[in-house]
């Protein structure tokens, strides 16, 4: 752990330590040697959440978030006040591995819901270090929108 912290001080490479829960899920879920004989345990929806997060890529929800980000960029260039502050915080966050705005909502959702499903006393899991910018105007991902998965580009 100390070596990881020292590495971080090195500068540009982001080495989250400890990794956030969402990162752990992403790294280990559905990987490793499969043993047929075992009783597969219930994953309390973790697998489903992961699939959900992937579906988000080609959804209207994603497009809207990128449109929002693009429009915000526009205003920032024209000197909009709060938007300037926001852009600045995103830039600063770069070196610290902070998540850059609403675009990360897919993964954020996995993290949030996992925390939600883990409400027992052992909740000393890593404070999802990468996604700590909650104070900002992060739009909560809308689950229903992600699930519905409209496909506007079909048949065009």
């Amino acid at each position: 752990m100390t070596s990881a912290i020292q590495q971080r001080r090195g500068g540009y490479l982001d080495r989250p330590s400890p990794s956030s829960l969402a990162d752990v899920v992403e790294v280990i879920l559905d990987k490793g040697l499969v043993i047929d004989a075992y009783v597969r345990v219930s994953l309390v929806g973790i697998e489903l959440l992961t699939i959900d997060a992937r579906i988000v890529i080609a959804s209207v929800d994603t497009y809207l978030r990128f449109a929002e980000a693009t429009n915000r960029l526009d205003l920032y260039e024209h000197g909009g006040k709060d938007l300037g502050d926001l852009a600045q915080s995103v830039t600063k966050g770069g070196a610290e591995g902070k998540v850059g705005g609403a675009i990360d909502a897919g993964k954020q959702k996995v993290g949030e819901l996992l925390h939600g499903s883990d409400d027992d006393e052992e909740d000393d899991s890593p404070p999802s270090s990468r996604a700590s910018g909650d104070g900002q105007r992060r739009s909560r991902p809308r689950k229903a929108a992600a699930r519905r998965r409209p496909q506007p580009d079909e048949g065009e």
């Binding site: 829960l21 752990v24 899920v25 790294v27 280990i28 879920l29 345990v41 219930s42 994953l43 309390v44 973790i46 996992l114 925390h115 499903s117 883990d118 027992d120 052992e122 909740d123 899991s125």
Partner: peptide, 13 residues
Amino acid sequence: RPLGRAVDLVAHD
């Protein structure tokens, strides 16, 4: 309790 909580996944890792 059944296995499958986030703490179990983290413990695995």
